[in-house]
């Protein structure tokens, strides 16, 4: 993924990871690409379309975009692209901060089950899973040093 992203460096992009898995992936990419500006993070809790069904995430974190995004080329990073709803929420939130010049979507896993016309520009792996299965990125510690592990879970697990 880092290789595919390298050509974009010329445009001096800023990188934003989506809580929680997307931040871990973005942190790795950020280190590999040796980006100078600090990594931005988004918590999309306030933009979820299922708020009225599931309520407020009890562990909501503040979104943190350390630099102004107006006219910037944004690389938006998440761990898994599934329905596309998270990305929809993240894009809405980004536009509440300003007007970026472009947004490029990079995901570690692109799996089947898209529900919105949203596709990743840069994909680590593509997976095909059954409807009830979920793929989840876990970390044995929250730091960028921690080993990341992918797990496939059955629904209800």
């Amino acid at each position: 993924m880092a290789q595919e992203l390298r050509p974009l460096l010329a445009r001096n992009p800023m990188m934003i990871g989506i809580h929680t898995g997307g931040v871990w992936v973005a942190q790795r990419l950020h280190d590999l690409l040796k980006l100078q500006e600090p990594l931005g993070t988004l918590d999309i809790s306030f933009y979820r379309d299922d708020f009225t069904r599931i309520g407020m995430n009890p562990e909501v974190k503040a979104s943190d975009l350390p630099v102004n995004i107006d006219n910037r080329h944004v690389i938006l990073v998440d761990d898994v692209l599934h329905t596309g709803r998270t990305i929809r929420a993240a894009m809405n939130e980004i536009f509440d901060y300003g007007r970026p010049a472009s947004v490029t979507l990079a995901v570690l896993i692109d799996r089947n089950g898209h529900e919105l016309p949203i596709h990743a520009d840069i994909v680590g792996h593509t997976m095909s899973l059954n409807k009830g299965q979920h793929v989840k990125l876990t970390s044995d510690s929250a730091t960028s040093e921690g080993a990341l592990e992918l797990k496939v879970q059955e629904a209800g697990e």
């Binding site: 407020m56 503040a62 979104s63």
Partner: peptide
Amino acid sequence: LQILDTAESFVSVGEREIKKVPL
């Protein structure tokens, strides 16, 4: 504490260009 933590997240919303969220 959940109320206080959630409020912390909303403080940053108040500091943005567009101070609204669609909740």
